[in-house]
Nucleic acid binder design. Sequence first.
RNA 1: GGGAUCUUAGCUCAGUUGGUUUAGAGCGCUGCCUUGACAGGGCAGAGGUCAUGGGUUCGAAUCCCUUAGAUCCCA
Length: 884
Amino acid sequence: MEIPTRYDSSIESKWYDYWIEKDYFHSVPDEREPYTIVIPPPNVTGKLHMGHMLNNTIQDILIRKARLEGKNACWVPGTDHASIATEAKVVKMLREKGIKKSEITREEFLKYAWEWKEEYGGIILQQLRKLGASCDWERTSFTMDEVRSEHVTKAFVDLYNKGKIYKGLRIINWDPDAKTVLSNEEVIYNDEPGHLYHVRYRIEGSDDYLTIATTRPETILGDTAVAVNPKDERYKHLEGKKVIVPMVNRVVPIIFDRYVDIEFGTGSLKITPAHDPNDYEIGLRHNLEVIDIFNEDGTLSEAAHFYVGKDRFEVRKLITKDLEEGGHLVKIEEYNHSVGRSERTNSVVEPRLSEQWYVHTEELAEPALKSVMEDVIEFFPKNQKNTYRHWLENIRPWTISRQLWWGHRIPAWYLDVDGETKTFVAENENKALELAIKETGNSGLKLSDLKQDEDALDTWFSSWLWPISVFNGFFDKKEIDYYYPTTVLVTGWDIIFLWVARMIMAGYEWKNEKPFEHVYFTGMVRDKKRRKMSKSLGNSPDALKLIEDYGADGVRFGMLSSSPAGGDLLFDDKLVEQGRNFSNKLWNAMRLIKGWEIDDKIETPVENRLAINWMKNRLNQVIEELDGLYEKYKLSEALMTLYKFIWNDFFSWHLEVIKPAYGQPIDRFTLNETIELFETTLTLLHPFMPFVTEEIWHYIKEREDGDDCVVSKYPKAESYDQALLDVVEKVKTIVTKIREVRNSKGLKPKDKLKLYAKKSDSLLDLLDSEKISGIKEKILKQAFLSGLELVDSEEIENTIPFMAANEKFMLESNIEIDIEAEIAKIEKEIVYQEGFVASINKKLSNQGFVNNAPEAVVNMERKKLADGEERIKILKESLKTLKK
RNA sequence: GGGAUCUUAGCUCAGUUGGUUUAGAGCGCUGCCUUGACAGGGCAGAGGUCAUGGGUUCGAAUCCCUUAGAUCCCA
């Protein structure tokens, strides 16, 4: 049978289908320990991008590892309805069809939206399968499906009844394009160039003026006061006075408030309570009138009196001109200031006074803060705790209503009773009607008398319930009791407030328990120039194309190999290529092994026994290292550890020793043991590279049905012989040195040469160790030597002298050696070694060091010193010989 | 304006409570190799005053302070 020399990753889909057919990813509660992950639900209409690939690769590694360890691994997939984003897409789609949202009913709009969702929704889940994500697809959830919606409604009603949800008039962030409120977390602030306008207001009953500075002159029309700092000596005399607002000629008070920054601008501040959150607060303190001069689309309203119907930015220009003509404008300065824009529409957010629904977050925040600060929930990396604490300690009410249709409609019904609006919050309209009848005593009320709130809920109001709702947690005790709290949440730090903190709050509110044990924060995927990957920059590679070109294993390797927890991933095709090459290396190692025939007449060579013994010990050492790395979620390092172990130790050292001459058979013991080692190695690597490991798993051995890598047994670390590992390391340095000598002297790497070694106790000990045999044979084979002879002499004709592992060697060669160069080299080495010895001597002659440092450290230094002195001695002898 | 994190090889990063030969890895680079698993390969090599200046200590990449620079969060 011919096996191609290149690994072909197109076999991946075959294995994915096979795993699904075997139902390996489905989980039901049983007596085993659960290992649970809920996916951060991607937008239902989203497409797989680099961030998803990183995030889901990490989750898949963890879940596959848990599965191999025999835990009941459950990874719940799903999607998010993403209200603003999806509604925007639907609106755009309708506009292209010539339909305006304002011209159709809510019901019609929702029908279009659901059609759209059915058509494009869930593509991303198909794409995750290509990546190898081993989700339990039977559990696929959607934040707006029936079960999840029931949770949303129940949570809302419950909070309302507990008094933790309320409706209030506040200054909110208004998006004039989307015509909806935004939460603070949906506003992106950036410094933008602008102007600082100095405008003078005449003081009533005098010819004096008070000059204020503002970046938004158009809001002058809504001014209801001017404020100065009570400590500001310049304005003390104005107490009790009033000023006249330009244009509108409104007489407003001069107020004194500590909020005003004496240093900034002119030290006096105009107050527009309707259009600035700070002004609003000041307004409340001083009982100021609130005049809203804007319409919901950002144009000026009747209340402004001037420029009615014109856009706010146009008005800014117009009023500047008019103020100047009226003699009110003092000067204009260039000024950079922070401008908030909508995360979705990029329009400049307008602070606006509006009635919205809020969650009272202070009480919810308390247990959420405590559990993270006390490491009841552990963050990886830890430093995200600070960010988290800062936000929760300064938490503000959460605006949960949105002026959108796509989402969970707020379960509040209104009834006008004698000109007063009463609110009834309930799971459904019938229950609301019951409440209304009970409260009003009017049994004649009908459903049509009630009017439901038009607004939908913030998307995050459904996602914060996700770890509960995916297990039907409000209604099914068995599932939630088994899977909750989940084991680990893997997500980006950019949604630590939007999502992570709120899930923790919800967990304590409804389950009185954390939602997850650990949170692993991934970094952002950036390009090589550290730019965030984005569609507009065009620097984001096509995820599916990458999988097609390099295989999912290659992509997973690339994503992981340079992605410490929390740190940014600088994506580079090169990394993915390295992953693909690794798959190919594994493939070819398999080809090599499969090509060997067993001959039972062959005795196992002694160096093979040593090699196998060494590999087994190394393997245990690696397993132990991996356990430690997994525990700390250092997955990139775990992958690198495996990569180096497999490529260097297993393939480059082990296979090269045991490899029979071309066309020759191998002994049974060596081959079987090597296959066994390979098999264990595949299990270790499987979480990272599931496809290639499964493929090779089935090549290296005949398998019975169900004997698959994906469900193989993860090995437990056993003890290992450190002394043996040290000895082999020493052998490797000797072999490497011989290769280097050949290399630098232009000798062929595979010509059989004889090696002489100066007899020493340590060398005798190494080569004739009673415990470890096969050392000499291993050196002979790996360094292509015809023999190794121990001699007393320092000098042998036709040899090249060199040092390795503190021993002196001479390699047979009749080439002329450049004695001058050789002397220079050795002298340079002596200088280095003497410096080394001197530095240790200095340490050891320091009484403070000898007295204070631990004994082991001092002994180590003494050993270093002795070794260094020994090297100098040998070098000096060599020098003497050369100079003769 | 307030806060956080960071600065180690050309690049991307490890480096645990200060002590394991005068700092490690991967990539890249340089040289050599190539009918025999794999050029998507093999062997070897070069590369660093651990940002700066000071301090603590017997001992500092590691702890403290200064300065410079970078990134991020909040307002």
